[in-house]
């Protein structure tokens, strides 16, 4: 007979381990947020959040970029993709992301990378541009986040966010004039 009691105990242990892993991951993101806030005088916050998927036609954009001398067959492939995509319900689909926002500017949220996490906590997955980084443990995640922050495109995004003109400043300047 199946040993359900043993399975139940295993499940409890797994749940406990998953809880600890998730707390550890939350703590890493808390520390990340704290340090970036300190480094940007309280302006920039980095967090995990759900963002809408880009329009479906995005699928073919790498192709468009690469294929300049497009053959007839590849053109028909793209047409086919357009047709399939147009048939898909336009209901918004969301994904998890690591994003940053300027706390002084409303709706300034920008995606830095895609994020996913196993039901048990680890592994986590960060997709930065074309790079996929699996993170197997605490140090692995910290190292991957360090790579994320030192990426030039992410750096540029954070720089731009930090330097968005504040709405109040714009209106003040307008009054002065």
């Amino acid at each position: 007979m199946a040993n359900f009691a043993e399975a139940y105990k295993l499940g409890l242990n797994a749940a406990n381990k998953a809880k600890k892993s998730k707390e550890e991951i939350n703590q890493i993101f808390y520390e990340l947020k704290k340090q970036i806030l300190e480094a940007t005088d309280g302006k920039i916050s980095v967090m995990r959040t759900r963002l809408p998927d880009p329009p479906k036609l995005g699928i073919i954009s790498p192709l468009k970029r690469r294929v300049l001398g497009m053959t007839e067959s590849s053109s028909s492939y793209i047409r086919e993709l357009h047709e399939i995509n147009s048939q898909i319900d336009e209901k918004e689909i969301q994904h998890w992301a690591i994003a940053a926002e300027n706390l002084l500017v409303k709706n300034s949220e920008k995606e830095l990378a895609r994020w996913s996490q196993d039901r048990g906590g680890y592994p986590c997955k960060i997709i930065l541009d074309s790079k996929t980084m699996y993170c197997e443990d605490k140090v692995g995640l910290e190292n991957a986040l360090t790579k994320l922050l030192s990426d030039p495109v992410v750096g540029e995004t954070l720089y731009r966010l930090q330097n968005i003109p504040l709405p109040e400043q714009v209106s003040t300047e307008a009054t002065t004039d």
Binding site: L63, K131, T132, Y134, E136
Partner: peptide, 20 residues
């Protein structure tokens, strides 16, 4: 062959980076 995209895949475990 028409290349659409390339994706490096790594696994970060402790201080090691495994190239998958």
């Amino acid at each position: 062959l028409m290349l659409l995209a390339t994706h490096p895949i790594t696994s970060n475990k402790g201080n090691r980076t495994l190239k998958i």
